[in-house]
Each structure stands twice: as C-alpha cells, then as structure tokens.
Computed example of a mutant assay.
Amino acid sequence: MNLLDIENALRLDLFDPAGPNQRWSSADLERAIDKAVIRYSQYYPNIGYCDMNTRPYQRTYPYPQPWNPAYPVWWIERIIYPLQAYGSYFQPPPGGLSASPGSGGGLSAGLYQYAVTFLSEGGETTPSPVTSVSVANNGSVSLSNIPLGPTQPALPGSALNSVIGRNLYRTQVGGSTLLLLTTLGDNSTTSYLDTAPDSLLTGRPPAPTVNTSGVMLWPPRERDFAEYSNLFESSTALAAGGNLGLQGNVGSGQGPLASQTPSFTLKLSSAELPRDNTLVMRVFYATRHQLDASGSTVPELHRDLIVLGASLYAMEAYQVPTNDNFSFQDGELHDHLDDSMIPRAWQEAIAARRSQFETRLQEIRNQRDFASAARVQWGDIPARWARL
C-alpha cells in the first residue's frame, strides 16, 4: 500500500473517476490524505525504538534520533533501563581486518573502508577500527584475518552469552558511512571476497553506535519518566555532547531549558544512576505514520480509516467554493430559484463522515490502550530488585 493506492481508493469513494472533469486535483487529495494520516497518527502513532548509551550519573537525555529524519519524534512512549546486565557485553574487535584489491568484481574505482562487529545472543558490538583499500574499476577486495570473537562469555557463569557471528561493513566508494555488507554466521571464518557493487548497499543498515552485545534482563524494567523536563541536575539545556555539564561533567548547556533540544528525565533514585556510559536504555518513541510513494507504515487493517478521513477533509475543502448559493425569484413570472440546498447537503454529508471518522478513531485508540495495558507480570518486583 502506498500513496497512489490510497488516492485511487479515495477517488472511488468520492465518485470522482479519472477524466477531464474531476472535482479534486491530485494535489488536493494528497493534502487531504496527509491531514487524515496526521489525525490518525495522533490516536495510533507509529512506534519506533532507539538504543541509547547512558551518561555517568545522568537522568536527563535528549530525544532519540528517529528512524527517518522526515518523521521527527512526537513523544516518548516507554523506556526500558537497564536493557542488559552490567558488564556482560563484549568489547568490540580490537583490530581491523586485512584487505587487498583484486579484479573481476563490481566495485568502482576508488577508496573503500571496511570494519567488523561481533554478534551475540543479545545484540551487536560497535565496529572495529576501519581498514582502507583502493581498487581499480570493476574490481574486488579480498578480506582476510577477520577477527574472531571470544570463546568465553563476558561474565562466565552468570548467563549464556557467546559470539555467534560477525557482521562485515563497508562504505560506498569515497564515502565514510559504514553499511552492512554481509553477515558471517559463525565465529570461525576468517576470509571473504567482496565483489558487491555500491548499488547493493543502498538502503542497508549502518554500523551500530551502541554496544548491545550484553545479556538481556528479564523481565524488562520499564521506568517512569518526565518529558520536556530538566528538573534535577541543572537549569540549562542539554549540551551538545548529551550531558548537562554538572553531574555528568561533559559540557555546559547553552540557553534555557529545552529551548533547542527536547529532553526527557528518568525518575531514578541516586542509587540507580548509571556509573558510566556502558549501560544501555531502550527508548520507544512515537512518530507520524509514513504514507508516500515508497510505502506505508499504516496497517492494512486501518487502510479504510485513512480513506474515510481523507474523504472528509477533501469534502470540507471542496464545500467552500460551492457556497456561492442564491435565492432568486422573478418578479413577473414568479419563478423561484434556490440552490441553497446544495451546500446544506454537503454540510450534512461532511458531518456524517466526521462522525464516522471520529468514531473509528476512538475504536482504535481503545484497542491500542487495551493492548498496552495487557502486560503479563511475573509476580511483584521488589522496589530494590535491581540491586538484589
């Protein structure tokens, strides 16, 4: 489902078939669809998540970077902290791999960079130091001495955690962003031949910036938080480095509270504050839904709701120019012409669709609230469970 599918369905519902005498232009319908998606997203947002490193003795953090810059974060949905057991993560590969140029591949002439990460049951480490190599046109790169992960868990005897694979990352020619090249599903392979052209890397995920290779805690610990707040550490906004500059001691904020960087504050006791930047918190956030030519995040179940809302907004916009109504009576023939019923009929139809749209929005909000509340708890969690 993409924008064109919704637009075609909308024209059918509006009885506005293709041809030279269409009431609504494509631009008008796209604006109506956009308004419907925004309204729908306020009731049933698109939920993404981002893993963030903690800061030493810090409660307040900036909003996470969204999955797509075109869809900024609206609000924070929930926060899990800590995500993994302290000290259970693997260190990233300490050294890079070896790379030598070759021929007979799809690589363009230029400079490429490579790196490797370790994969565990919990997640992935950050990348190793990069290795650079220059190749000729239609070339290839032979990778060797690919680092192997440790054979023992980071905390032996505490939980099962081992290196189960590795990810290889590569930049596009002349670039600096590491993109996923391939996954090695073992901890023994030490060589790989890269012949992939840059086009195969387009849209691939970038290398991680947070080390999530530790042991996942269960049950997860959701934390209370306050948005747009900076109540505990200072009276200034977040610094560029993410800290507030007092307890974190990484920098100082510029400007008043949250004037430039929206923030949230975890409600943690002093005993629960992170000691360093190795702990990970998982932040779930809400954004508007995507609906464009490339695809959509709107569930198929709610497709009819978007069309219904778009038809409401399209009819509202079209009803304005039709309000040039009149009531005329010929003085001699006593003929009475009155077209005021046309706008009245439009208004009644708009009111009916608005009622349908709002009712359906309330239904899906109730469904979402019920699903969010139906969480299974494995017994009572003591107040000081994290330190037991």
Rank of each mutant, 00 (worst) to 15 (best):
S142E: 05
S142T: 13
S142I: 01
L143P: 04
L143T: 06
L143W: 09
L143N: 06
L143H: 04
L143Y: 04
S144C: 01
S144F: 00
S144H: 00
N145H: 07
N145F: 10
N145G: 13
N145M: 12
N145Y: 10
I146E: 06
I146N: 10
I146H: 03
I146K: 04
I146V: 07
P147T: 08
P147M: 09
L148W: 05
L148D: 02
L148Q: 13
L148P: 00
G149V: 15
G149N: 09
G149E: 09
G149S: 13
G149F: 09
G149A: 13
P150I: 05
T151P: 00
T151D: 03
T151W: 00
T151F: 00
T151Q: 06
T151S: 08
T151R: 03
T151L: 07
Q152L: 05
Q152W: 00
P153C: 08
P153T: 09
P153D: 11
P153K: 09
P153A: 14
A154W: 05
A154R: 06
A154V: 04
A154H: 08
A154M: 03
A154I: 08
L155I: 13
L155K: 12
P156N: 06
P156K: 06
P156A: 11
P156H: 05
P156V: 03
P156Q: 01
G157A: 07
G157Q: 14
S158A: 11
S158D: 10
S158I: 14
S158R: 13
A159E: 13
A159P: 02
A159W: 08
L160I: 10
L160Y: 15
L160R: 14
N161G: 14
N161T: 11
S162L: 15
S162A: 13
S162Q: 15
V163Y: 10
V163N: 11
V163H: 07
V163Q: 05
V163E: 05
I164Y: 07
I164E: 08
I164V: 15
I164T: 15
G165R: 02
G165S: 01
G165V: 05
G165N: 04
G165A: 07
G165E: 02
G165Y: 03
R166C: 11
R166S: 11
R166N: 13
R166D: 10
R166Y: 14
R166F: 12
R166K: 15
R166Q: 14
R166V: 10
R166P: 11
N167F: 08
N167R: 15
N167T: 08
N167H: 14
N167L: 10
N167M: 08
L168N: 01
L168K: 03
L168R: 01
Y169L: 01
Y169C: 02
Y169M: 07
R170F: 00
R170W: 01
R170M: 01
R170N: 02
T171C: 02
T171Y: 02
T171N: 02
Q172H: 00
Q172E: 11
Q172P: 00
